[in-house]
């Protein structure tokens, strides 16, 4: 009864093996060919696009306004210097965001009726700040709070713009953390509670370390967004110019937009490597998951 079936499946396995071998060969050849084709087609496409751009009647004007070598040479050092402020903004904001958001996420994941008010507060906070455009928060705080002249608080617009970024981004990052916390299997909590760890000890030593590891790539994405959004502080800081405001000022002088390209370059120098790094982290995580490893 079983013999014909066995033979058929045996034959099937052989067939599969053979076709895999064949495919292996063709893949190698195809690999070399593929690289060649990709290179040629990329060159052709780029060439065509470049030709189309350069041959457009607007090209000379565009080149003069956006890619002006002389303006670039004159403005870029200043913009780069101003970009240091952007770096200062995001490097100082990020740790505060990571800590504050983790607190929000932990409050929100507390179980039990006693914690309802904290849970509700955290939920309301996240809903609120996730729903409001960041630029609006920056404006409201950056212009609004200094007019209150609260004793002991700074009156500089940039400071409140910086605070606004922290408030807004913490809401996003809290959600990322929360997803991570919820992705840790309940059996991990059961195991730690069974050993006598308190709810808090279990969260701190077992759940959060695993959660944070899992959400590093999405956290990086939010960090990249934050780096770009430091430009929003330009709107509320008259005196401490960051890269975008600097570019705006230089540009306003002679109606040349090359400084914006310079500012864009500053951001890209940071964000592109960071994006690649995040992709690499994600890929590594995916491979580990495929290999059956945890965390």
């Amino acid at each position: 009864m079983t013999q014909p079936g066995d033979r058929a499946s045996d034959g099937g396995a052989k067939e599969r093996r053979r076709s895999r071998i064949l495919r292996g060969f063709s893949l190698k050849e195809e690999g070399a060919k593929a690289v060649l084709i990709a290179t040629v087609s990329t060159l052709v496409v780029l060439g065509l696009l470049a030709y189309a751009a350069v041959s457009s009647p607007y090209w000379p004007e565009f080149k003069d306004e956006f890619l002006n070598r002389q303006v670039f040479a004159e403005s870029f050092p200043d913009i780069l210097r101003a970009f240091k402020r952007n770096i200062f903004y995001f490097l100082t904001a990020e740790p505060v965001i990571l800590a504050f958001a983790l607190m929000l996420a932990v409050l929100r994941s507390l179980r039990g009726p006693v914690f309802f008010p904290l849970r509700a507060l955290s939920t309301i906070y996240v809903d609120l700040f996730r729903g409001i455009p960041t630029v609006l928060v920056v404006f409201a705080l950056g212009f609004g709070i200094p007019t209150l002249r609260i004793p002991g608080f700074p009156v500089e617009g940039w400071f409140w713009g910086w605070v606004a970024l922290i408030l807004s981004y913490s809401a996003y990052v809290a959600e990322v953390y929360r997803a991570g916390i919820e992705s840790v299997h309940p059996s991990q909590t059961a195991a730690s509670r069974a050993l006598g760890l308190s709810r808090w000890q279990s969260l701190r030593s077992v759940v959060i370390p695993q959660a944070v590891r899992r959400v590093v790539p999405p956290l990086m994405n939010d960090f990249i967004s934050l780096q770009k959004d430091t430009a929003l502080i330009a709107f509320v800081s008259a005196f401490s110019a960051e890269a975008f405001l600097k570019a705006q000022r230089i540009s306003a002088g002679d109606f040349n937009f090359t400084p914006f390209v310079g500012a864009a370059l500053c951001f890209l120098i940071i964000t592109i490597p960071m994006t690649r790094f995040t992709d690499w982290l994600l890929e590594r995580q995916r491979k580990r998951r495929m290999a059956g490893g945890l965390a």
Binding site: S187, Q188, A190, A191, S192, R193, A194, L195, G196, V206, Q210, L294, A295
Partner: peptide, 15 residues
């Protein structure tokens, strides 16, 4: 729980 230990089917070690 300090007095009463438990071992689970799925080990539940901390990875």
């Amino acid at each position: 729980r300090r007095q009463v230990g438990i071992v689970f089917q799925a080990f539940n070690l901390f990875p």
